[in-house]
Structure formats: C-alpha cells, structure tokens
Design a protein around this nucleic acid. Structure first.
Length: 760
DNA sequence: AAGTCGGGCATTTTT
DNA sequence: TGCCCGACTT
C-alpha cells in the first residue's frame, strides 16, 4: 500500500493525521471516501492500531457497506473487526447491550414514522385533542425538533408557553409513555438514549475504547443530538476525523445543523482543518458554474473546486414552452450525448415532477427507473408480515398487534376492536393482556369468539416461533393465518404482492444464511456486543434499519430521481428539470434566508453529480396543482456566469441531436431579468431584446417513438376485455402497469408485459 | 369488509 | 387537477 501514490497531497495529509480532532472539508467528488478508507488502513497498517478501536460512522447503510468493502480490500482482511456503520446501527448495538441501564426491555422494537403517527394519533385522542387543530404531522414535527435537540418531554414542557406547544408537550409526554408501553423506540430516541448511556461510567469506558479512533462521514448532516453523541464518544481531545461539506447540507429541514461544521472548533477545540478541493468527477465548467451558485450563500467556510480534466462542454440551458416541451427537450438532450443512457440521470425537485419526464421516456420506449418513492419495507403486505414477526416476539407491541388483529379479515370488526382497545387503555395494559385474561364482557358473542380464536392462533404461533428458523417461520405465518390466501388471486395487484412477499422470504433466507456462516460480525467487533440476540430480533433490527432492498443498479436505463436522492451519486450526463422560481427555490422555502441557502445547495448538489454533460431546464408555464401557471426561471440560474452556459429556447427545441443551435447573448437578456445585487458576474441585462417567440416547430421524430408508444390517452384493445383507453401508467420495464378503462368493464390495472394490448 | 364519495391537500426523507 | 384519507354506505 503506497499511500503517497494513492492519494493527492491534501488527501494524504488528512489520511495520516495524528491525534486530536480533525475537520476535513471535502468538496463534491474530491475523494472523501478515499480519505476515510485510507486513513483506517493507515492506522491499522502503519500505526499498528487495533482495528477494534476504530469506529467509522456514516448516515446510510450504502455508504457504510461501500466503506467497509473498500477498507477490507485495502487491508486484505475480512471481516475487519472495526465498526463501520450508521449512527443508528451504532446506537442500536449500545442499546441492545446496555438497554436496561436506560429502562429499555431487551426486546424493544424500532418504530418507523408510520408507527409514530399512529402513536401520536392515539396520544391526541387520549389528551382529548382534535386532529384538525393538532395535525399529526405538525405535532410529530414539533416533537421531532425537540428530540433532535435532545429536549425530553419534561424539559420541553418547561420551555413552551403558547397554546399549541403546551398541548404538544402533553402529547409528547403521552407519546413517550405509549411508545415504551408498546416496547418501542423511535429513531431519535436511539440517539438520545445512547447519549444518555454514555453518561454511565462503565459504558463510556467501553465505548471510548472502541471509538479511540473515530471517523464521521457527512458531518454536515448531523443534528444536535448526533453532535452530542459524537462528542461523548470521542471525549475531550479525542481522535475524531469529521468529514463533510457545508455546501452539500440539504437536510436542515430534518434537523441537520450546518453549524456543526461551521462552528466545529467550538465543539472540538484546536482541530486541524483541511480542505479537499481537487475534484475527480466533473469538468471545470461544471465546477465553476456550481461554485458560482453556492458562492451566494453566506453560511459557509468556502472552497473552490478544481480539476485537471479541462473545461469541458458548456452547460446547456433550455427554457421550454411547458413541462411537456421541456421533457421532450431534456430527453433529446440526454440522447444526444455520447454518454450511455444507463449513465444518465434526470433530477427534479419533487417526486411529482418526475411525471412529465416519465411520460416522455415512456412514449419513446426508453428504459428508465425511478429511484426512491415507495420503499420495499413500507409496502402494506411487507409491513403486515413484519408486524406478525414483531407480535410473535412481543405480543404487547400493540402497534403491530392492531395491525394484524384483523389482517387477513377474521371477523374482528371495528366495534370489537374499539372495545378491546378502549379496555386496554382504561386498564393501562395492552389488548394482548385483555385477551390473555379473557375479560371480554360487553363484547359481542361473535366478536369475542373471533378474539379468542385469534388469541389461540397467536399462542400457537408463538410456540412455533421458538424453534422454527426464520424463513420457515414466515411461511408458517403465511399458511396458518391465511395471509397467503389474501393474495392468491390472479389480478396484477395480487401478483405484485406475491412477488414482494417472495422477496421478503428471500431476504429472510439470505439473512439467516449470512448469520449462519458467521460473516456478519467479526469476532471481537463492537457489533459482536449485541450478538447474543436471537435471529428474529436481529432480522427485525435489520429490516428496521435498512428500509430498502438496497442498491439500485441503473442497468441500461435512465435514472429519474429527486435532487435529494441524487446526493452521493454521479452520472456521465445529468439533466436538472423544473428550474423555476417556486420550484427551486421551492415556494415553501422562501420565508427564511437559511432555507433559500439550502435550496441553493440543492442545486449545487445536483450540478456536481455530472461528470461531463450537464443540462438545465425550465418551462414558461406548467400545471401546478392542476392549474396552468406562468413560471419564471429560477433566480439561481442568473447566478451562473453566462460564460459557462449555452442557452437554447423553445423555438429551437426540435434541433436534431448533435447539430449546434443558435445561442442567445447571455442569460440575463434571455430571461429579461436584472442582474441580482451582489452577483459576481459582470453581465447587465434588463433591456436586451426578448428572444424570438416563434412556436412553429417540427417535431423531431425519434425512430422508436411514434405510433407504437404506450402512453396516457391511447386507445387499446385487450383480447378479453375489449376496447379501452389507457388512463395512467405506473412503474416501468417488466413491472410497468397500465391503468385502463374498458368499455363496459370499467377500470382495470394490467401488467404491460403480459397484457398483450393491441394499439388502436 | 369492501366499495363509494368528498374534502383537504399538494417539498425534500439517509435511519 | 388528481390523490389520499377518512367517513359513510351497503
């Protein structure tokens, strides 16, 4: 391992940093993962550090997995017994090990946002508060903000005084009680309780041994609680290496505090501060343009990215007539590059905004995949089965209990359920305790019978759970509860759900195998602390923390996603759509300058995803919430110096790929927008002639567009359903579904691949 | 328990 | 404008 050769001088310096805190300001594409992995390798190999005393923390499982893999590669050692994982995984290890010290039962469950909302609703009801004056999301938001700052319910109650927040304080307190009664811990609690645990002498000693060399990635995304966690873990003068980029902080709305980077010295005195400014991803034009945007922000330390790869092509900016026209241009643009479609991405501000692009791609039969959106473990059928597993482990988990109580339907209706739950509430127990006691007076005979049958069903399954391995247990649940029957029909919906269930079985199978082969936690590793757990607990932890069946592989298809989802990724060609005032910056962000700055960073993140080609686009008008709205270009566009841009306009959109297009003089005259005060560029606009407004156009017909396209509004014929019309399209590729209305038969959902539709 | 209707709503989402 | 959730219906 030749560090000096593998790293540039700045990277090298950061990697071989000695003791004490270090802040590495790593610009986009500057090789931060490289620094972290090489630092770990250097510590182990050159400094003879015991890997068990190294802890590396990330935000995502993906980042952690990648990091671990690369370190193990570097050191040729697998598994390496250092901790590499997410904040929450680290917290979980501690809580499974020492949970009782903070009054947690050993089998606590991690509750997700949906569960949180259910608990808030219950808490609201118990407090006699109305959901219309206390919307669940607002209440949850307020509680979340408190938790991010490590403010418990008691402290919260003391510091609020207005009407709304004093009620929220009550709900907060009750929420915590319900959460604990159900045996649950939410994501924020995990961090909170870990910080608390670290106040314990013994825990602190043990953990600091493990985190003697601490590395934290994406430091700009840490919230206050996580900062305190890191501080407690590192201890005074700890050997912390924090890596981050204030320009890529896009999670303020989730509690992330940029000040953790900006005021790093306050939390970790006398740090070494290093910048990584050489970029290995993008062309200089892209870097300069993106840099110019974010240079308008005040809350930053500032850095200037450079590359030795040359200026590259100009960024192409297009303003379309409407979102359909914009999408058409963007797809043309992406097709016109020599970058493969599988290495291209279209980025947008909101999930809903992918629609116009999807339709365009669909119409041209271009493969695409939408990244993000509905996640695997959030699908109803998966949540149901997970809920069964949770109930089997802890039948007092009333959230999961009520989820499966009548799923599949077994004659326990609303009235019965409400009586049961009210009784549990009144006696401060759980529905399960009521069932065990058999105290069912006042419940209808039919309901009571169904409840007792359910009790016996659960009892039987709990016994089975003792000795059945995980995949078999899941199959057992599917059979004995009759859940499998729920989706044994032949319609596309059932098919999808069956596929998902199969995927869960696969996940369980491979999870069990991996654990069986012991390739999970390395001997002596921090993770091994929690290893005493049964495999059911481990699996449930796994699904709670993973949230998705990981890694997306674009294959040959264009990736479509939000700017947020794009963070951390890179593509040969990138197009960012909908760059309009009110979309980016989003109109909800316009109240506070701090929010505006975050929107700017969002654009920065998007732009710096591109390696060689970058396209920016907006539309003159678009449908917003159903109404046509005239749109102005994003003010951020005028922050990009014109020399980096090549501007196109609606009249010339039909230019075939590769043919150079007419250029307007500069971005300001193009948009008839005065140069914003403080903009560093020299351009001056406002009075230049407006661009030609010709709407004449020749539609550029791609070879495979045309009549064969499946798109909304098309009339089709189905072998048995007759003629109808496509009214909507979901998904893509093999799982693409068409929602059609058939004459006389009504609405049907068909899997495009199997439907064999004839186009009319 | 499943289907229908209508009001409210409509950023971003690593764990 | 469309979708999602909750209330209401049968």
């Amino acid at each position: 391992m030749d560090l000096a050769n593998a790293l540039n001088p700045d990277q090298h310096e950061a990697a071989v940093h000695g003791t004490g805190p270090q802040l590495v300001l790593a610009g986009a594409g500057s090789g931060k993962t490289r620094v972290i992995t090489h630092r770990i390798a250097w510590l182990v190999r050159e400094r003879g550090v015991d890997p068990r005393s190294i802890t590396a923390v990330t935000f995502t499982n993906k980042a952690a997995a990648e990091m671990r893999e690369r370190v193990e590669q570097l050191l040729q050692r697998h598994p390496l017994p250092c901790f590499v994982g997410t904040f929450h995984r680290l917290a979980l290890v501690m809580l499974r090990r020492w949970g009782p010290k903070v009054d947690l039962t050993h089998d606590f469950a991690i509750v997700d946002t949906a569960d949180q909302k259910a608990l808030i609703k219950r808490a609201l009801r118990e407090e006699g508060l109305d959901e219309s004056s206390f919307p669940v999301n607002s209440v949850l938001g307020a509680i979340g903000r408190a938790k991010h700052k490590l403010i418990g319910s008691a402290a919260y109650a003391k510091q609020v005084d207005d009407f709304f927040h004093t009620r929220v304080a009550k709900v907060y307190k009750r929420y915590q009680k319900l959460l604990r009664d159900a045996g649950g811990v939410d994501f924020d609690d995990m961090i909170h309780l870990s910080v608390k645990l670290l106040e314990d002498e013994q825990v602190r000693r043990r953990m600091r041994e493990r985190a003697e060399w601490l590395l934290v990635d994406e430091f700009q995304d840490t919230n206050h609680a996580q900062l305190r966690f890191v501080q407690a873990l590192a201890g005074p003068g700890g050997n912390l290496t924090a890596v981050g980029d204030e320009d890529q902080g896009i999670y303020r709305w989730r509690g992330a505090e940029l000040d953790n980077i900006l005021d790093f010295e306050r939390s970790f005195p006398d740090p070494a501060i290093r910048k990584l400014e050489q970029n290995y991803r993008s062309t200089q034009n892209i870097l300069d343009a993106a840099g110019a945007v974010v240079a308008h922000n005040t809350g930053r330390r500032g850095k200037t990215l450079w590359t030795d790869r040359g200026a590259g092509t100009k960024i192409v900016l297009y303003r379309g007539k409407d979102e359909v026209d914009e999408a058409r241009w963007v797809v043309n643009a992406i097709q016109s590059t020599d970058v493969p479609l599988g290495d291209s991405a279209i980025l947008v501000r909101t999930n809903a905004a992918t629609r116009a692009f999807e339709e365009e791609l669909l119409g041209r039969r271009i493969q695409y995949n939408v990244v993000g959106g509905l996640r695997f473990y959030e699908r109803a059928e998966i949540k149901d089965l997970i809920a069964y597993l949770r109930v089997l482990r802890n039948p007092r988990d009333f959230l999961s209990f009520s989820r499966v109580l009548n799923q599949p339907p077994r004659g326990i209706g609303k009235t019965t359920r409400e009586l049961l739950e009210a009784r549990a509430e009144r006696t401060s127990t759980t529905p399960w305790d009521i069932l065990l006691a058999g105290d069912l007076d006042g419940i209808s005979k039919r309901g009571a019978t169904a409840l007792l049958a359910f009790r016996d069903l659960l009892k039987g399954m709990i016994d089975e759970a003792e000795h059945l391995p995980l995949p078999a247990l899941l199959r057992h649940i599917l059979d004995t509860t009759g859940y499998a029957k729920l989706y044994d029909k032949d319609d596309p919906d059932s098919q999808t759900r069956r596929e998902n269930i199969d995927e869960l079985l696969n996940a369980a199978q491979s999870f069990a195998e991996q654990r069986g082969y012991g390739s999970g936690a390395a001997v002596g590793s921090l993770e091994a602390l929690a290893e005493g757990d049964d495999s059911l607990t481990a699996f449930l932890d796994h699904v709670s923390l993973v949230s998705d069946t990981d890694d997306f592989d674009p294959g040959g298809s264009v990736s479509l996603m939000t700017l947020h989802s794009a963070k951390g990724l890179e593509f040969g060609a990138v197009a960012i759509g909908g760059l309009e005032d009110g979309i980016l910056p989003h109109f909800n962000a316009k109240q506070h300058s701090a929010d505006i700055e975050e929107e700017r960073r969002l654009l920065y993140v998007g732009m710096t995803r591109a390696e060689t080609r970058l396209f920016l686009s907006c539309a003159r008008r678009r449908r917003v919430a159903g109404r046509w709205q005239d749109q102005l270009p994003s003010p951020f566009l005028s922050e990009i110096p014109p020399r980096f841009l090549q501007i196109e306009e609606a009249a010339s959109f039909s230019t075939p790929p590769g043919v150079p297009v007419r250029q307007a003089q500069d971005v300001y005259s193009f948009f008839k927008r005065p140069v914003p005060a403080g903009a560093s560029s020299s351009g001056r606009g406002g009075s230049s002639p407006s661009p030609p407004r010709g709407e004449r156009r020749v539609v550029y017909d791609t070879p495979n567009a045309g009549a064969g396209a499946l798109r909304k509004g098309r009339r089709v014929r189905h072998a048995s359903l007759g003629t109808g019309k496509i009214i909507d399209i979901e998904g893509s590729g093999d799982t693409m579904r068409l929602i059609c209305i058939f004459e006389g038969k009504g609405r049907r959902k068909l899997v495009a691949k199997y439907a064999n539709l004839e186009l009319l």
